[in-house]
Design a protein around this nucleic acid. Structure first.
Length: 260
DNA sequence: CCCTATGTTCCCAA
DNA sequence: CTTGGGAACATAGG
């Protein structure tokens, strides 16, 4: 469920709550997650976002990597509160506990060592390598939307923000990515940064069940220009927003102002 | 019963 | 060998 802005929201909130705090217990409630050992007694030294994943660093150099996939949520609560349905694991501290609640059970949790480099993650807000992306894209015929959502090239853009970015730059999601000019790539870079940064300020997009660490909805759903607006007028040209399937994902776009 | 869902990975076919 | 599309994963809601 969460894309870059939602995961960034969680990381900022987690940082304030668990940095420099010691883990006193870990409870894995879903066997699908596998064993996660060696956390008890360790202190959290930092919380970072890696694409759409939350990375929690421990004082022994290990890193705890959580990917929420489609329906994963993180929730902070006091130990006296009851565990909600679909709680998959808990990490307890002296001042409260962190839960992962995830109905579809796709979320993954892993402990990695210092060496397993995640520095390869391409961060769109820091590292948007426009010329390099254009070079890679030149050789590919797949739709530009699929390219933007491929985490190998840029990490963090998912279905909602891909739709929003392409609408902002007036490019059809189906345009073969080799046909995006360098000038258009610069527009994509600018739009991606503006949209993602604004969505972070809004603490994410709640169109169904996204909630932050403290159970609050985001606010970016009020800023959406195309996503979830099928049949409504395009805010740029008054055309009617349509929704079609692209590689299995619901894709919202304006057929009159987004050019193939 | 049907379809949908903010993600990733695996298996094929071309 | 590469590329890209669809199914699979598991569950709830409309």
């Amino acid at each position: 469920m969460p894309e870059l802005p939602e995961v960034e929201t969680l990381c900022r909130q987690l940082r304030r709550v668990i940095t420099e705090r010691k883990i006193i217990s870990v409870e894995i409630l879903d066997r699908r997650l596998g064993a996660v050992d060696g956390l008890v007694g360790k202190k959290i030294t930092a919380v970072n976002r890696q694409g759409k994943a939350v990375e929690m660093r421990l004082d022994d150099g290990a890193r705890l990597l959580l990917h929420l996939r489609m329906t994963g949520k993180m929730q902070w609560q006091s130990p006296s509160q009851a565990l909600p349905p679909h709680t998959r694991f808990t990490i307890s501290f002296s001042h409260g506990r962190l839960l992962c609640v995830d109905t579809r059970r796709f979320a993954t949790l892993a402990v990695t060592s210092e060496e397993s480099l995640h520095a390869l993650v391409k961060e769109p807000l820091l590292d948007f390598q426009t010329e390099e992306l254009r070079t890679i894209a030149r050789a590919k015929k797949l739709p530009v939307k699929s390219f933007l959502m491929d985490q190998r090239w840029i990490a963090g853009i998912g279905n909602i923000y891909a739709c929003e970015i392409l609408h902002e730059v007036s490019i059809s999601p189906w345009r073969p990515v080799c046909g995006v000019s360098l000038r258009e790539w610069r527009k994509i870079e600018r739009a991606a940064k503006e949209i993602l940064e604004k969505a972070i300020v809004c603490r994410g997009t709640t169109v169904s069940d996204w909630r932050d660490l403290f159970g609050q909805k985001g606010e970016y759903q009020h800023e959406l220009k195309v996503y979830d607006r099928e049949g409504m007028p395009c805010l740029s040209c008054r055309g009617s927003i349509r929704r079609l399937r692209l590689s299995g994902r619901g894709t919202y776009f304006c057929p009159s102002c987004q050019k193939t």
